[in-house]
Deep mutational scan, measured.
Amino acid sequence: MQIFVKTLTGKTITLEVEPSDTIENVKAKIQDKEGIPPDQQRLIFAGKQLEDGRTLSDYNIQKESTSHLVLR
């Protein structure tokens, strides 16, 4: 499924993911596309910070959901 990640600069990154993917996996995909190390990434969805060990389905992130990327 596709999800979108919006950066603070207003850029939207499109990612191909599975509901069973962990947040860690998603951060690795963002690193592949954008070159941002996962330890600098914070992903926010529905006002919550997403934890590495959880999956997209844990957070009820469905296709075409948009989460926000904040850099630390």
Results as ranks from 00 to 15, higher is better:
58 D>V: 03
21 D>A: 07
21 D>Y: 06
39 D>K: 11
47 G>Q: 04
56 L>N: 00
11 K>W: 08
51 E>S: 07
12 T>G: 03
56 L>A: 01
13 I>H: 03
68 H>G: 06
1 M>A: 03
40 Q>P: 02
19 P>G: 07
14 T>G: 05
48 K>A: 09
3 I>G: 01
67 S>Q: 11
57 S>R: 12
72 R>N: 10
10 G>A: 03
59 Y>D: 01
20 S>N: 13
48 K>N: 09
31 Q>E: 09
46 A>I: 06
51 E>H: 08
59 Y>F: 04
53 G>T: 10
32 D>V: 13
49 Q>P: 11
57 S>D: 08
38 P>A: 15
16 E>R: 09
41 Q>R: 02
19 P>S: 08
43 L>F: 03
22 T>I: 04
49 Q>E: 15
10 G>H: 05
5 V>Q: 00
62 Q>S: 14
45 F>C: 04
42 R>D: 09
30 I>R: 00
60 N>H: 09
12 T>I: 15
41 Q>H: 04
16 E>D: 12
65 S>V: 09
65 S>L: 08
29 K>H: 04
56 L>W: 03
50 L>F: 02
54 R>P: 03
72 R>K: 13
23 I>M: 03
3 I>A: 01
28 A>F: 12
21 D>W: 10
68 H>M: 13
2 Q>R: 14
36 I>M: 05
72 R>H: 13
9 T>C: 15
56 L>V: 07
11 K>G: 07
67 S>V: 15
55 T>I: 06
39 D>P: 07
1 M>F: 15
58 D>I: 03
6 K>N: 06
50 L>D: 01
72 R>E: 14
26 V>I: 12
68 H>F: 15
36 I>N: 02
45 F>L: 07
38 P>Y: 12
66 T>Q: 10
18 E>H: 14
27 K>W: 03
49 Q>F: 13
70 V>R: 08
31 Q>M: 13
8 L>P: 14
7 T>A: 05
1 M>S: 03
33 K>L: 13
53 G>L: 08
28 A>Y: 12
7 T>Q: 06
38 P>F: 12
53 G>I: 06
59 Y>C: 03
2 Q>G: 04
9 T>N: 13
67 S>Y: 13
27 K>T: 01
16 E>G: 06
13 I>E: 01
5 V>F: 06
16 E>W: 14
56 L>M: 04
63 K>S: 14
69 L>G: 02
39 D>N: 12
49 Q>V: 15
26 V>R: 00
35 G>Q: 05
2 Q>W: 12
65 S>I: 08
40 Q>G: 05
58 D>F: 14
18 E>M: 14
21 D>M: 10
12 T>F: 11
60 N>D: 10
5 V>R: 00
47 G>V: 02
14 T>E: 08
50 L>T: 03
52 D>R: 04
42 R>A: 09
50 L>H: 01
9 T>Y: 14
47 G>D: 05
46 A>Y: 09
12 T>L: 14
20 S>H: 12
47 G>I: 02
45 F>I: 04
49 Q>I: 15
7 T>E: 03
16 E>N: 11
45 F>V: 03
40 Q>A: 09
7 T>I: 12
16 E>M: 13
18 E>N: 13
19 P>K: 06
24 E>M: 13
17 V>L: 05
47 G>L: 03
50 L>N: 01
17 V>W: 02
30 I>K: 00
50 L>R: 00
34 E>G: 04
19 P>Q: 07
27 K>S: 01
8 L>A: 13
51 E>F: 07
52 D>K: 04
64 E>M: 13
62 Q>C: 11
24 E>V: 07
16 E>H: 11
40 Q>K: 12
4 F>R: 09
63 K>L: 10
44 I>S: 11
34 E>M: 15
43 L>A: 00
17 V>E: 00
37 P>N: 07
4 F>H: 10
11 K>S: 07
23 I>C: 01
2 Q>N: 11
69 L>Q: 02
63 K>P: 15
23 I>E: 00
13 I>V: 05
52 D>Q: 04
42 R>I: 15
11 K>A: 08
70 V>E: 13
17 V>H: 02
67 S>D: 10
38 P>D: 04
25 N>Y: 12
30 I>N: 00
53 G>K: 11
24 E>L: 14
55 T>K: 10
37 P>Y: 05
51 E>N: 07
35 G>E: 03
34 E>L: 15
44 I>V: 10
22 T>P: 05
1 M>D: 02
32 D>A: 14
26 V>E: 00
68 H>W: 15
72 R>V: 15
33 K>I: 14
26 V>Y: 01
71 L>G: 06
6 K>T: 12
2 Q>D: 05
43 L>Y: 02
25 N>V: 14
70 V>T: 08
13 I>L: 10
57 S>A: 14
27 K>A: 01
13 I>K: 00
20 S>T: 13
63 K>A: 15
15 L>P: 00
33 K>C: 09
49 Q>T: 15
24 E>R: 14
29 K>D: 02
60 N>Y: 06
70 V>N: 05
6 K>E: 07
49 Q>G: 06
35 G>A: 05
53 G>M: 09
20 S>D: 11
4 F>N: 07
70 V>P: 01
53 G>C: 08
20 S>W: 14
38 P>E: 06
42 R>E: 11
26 V>M: 05
22 T>L: 10
41 Q>K: 01
36 I>Q: 02
14 T>N: 06
66 T>W: 08
30 I>C: 01
21 D>E: 09
1 M>P: 02
22 T>S: 08
49 Q>S: 09
11 K>Q: 08
11 K>N: 07
52 D>S: 07
67 S>C: 15
57 S>I: 08
9 T>E: 10
9 T>R: 11
63 K>M: 11
42 R>Y: 12
41 Q>C: 07
38 P>R: 13
52 D>P: 06
11 K>V: 08
55 T>P: 05
7 T>S: 06
31 Q>L: 09
70 V>Q: 10
18 E>R: 14
65 S>R: 07
9 T>M: 11
70 V>I: 14
51 E>R: 09
59 Y>L: 06
63 K>N: 14
43 L>E: 00
53 G>P: 06
7 T>R: 06
52 D>F: 04
61 I>P: 02
57 S>Y: 09
32 D>Q: 14
41 Q>W: 06
33 K>N: 05
3 I>Y: 02
24 E>T: 09
41 Q>A: 05
7 T>D: 06
39 D>Y: 12
40 Q>R: 11
16 E>K: 09
28 A>I: 13
20 S>G: 11
27 K>L: 05
61 I>C: 02
45 F>R: 03
12 T>V: 14
66 T>P: 08
60 N>F: 06
66 T>E: 10
28 A>H: 12
58 D>S: 12
55 T>W: 03
43 L>V: 03
52 D>L: 05
34 E>F: 09
72 R>D: 11
28 A>E: 09
22 T>E: 02
58 D>Y: 15
23 I>V: 09
36 I>F: 09
16 E>Y: 13
56 L>D: 01
9 T>Q: 11
28 A>C: 09
25 N>H: 12
39 D>A: 12
56 L>G: 00
54 R>N: 09
3 I>P: 00
39 D>I: 09
67 S>R: 12
55 T>A: 06
4 F>V: 10
14 T>D: 04
31 Q>I: 02
61 I>M: 07
37 P>M: 06
10 G>Q: 04
21 D>C: 07
29 K>F: 05
70 V>M: 11
20 S>A: 08
53 G>D: 11
47 G>N: 06
29 K>P: 00
4 F>D: 04
48 K>D: 06
68 H>S: 08
25 N>P: 00
45 F>N: 04
67 S>T: 15
22 T>Y: 07
12 T>K: 07
27 K>C: 02
40 Q>S: 08
71 L>V: 10
47 G>T: 04
40 Q>C: 13
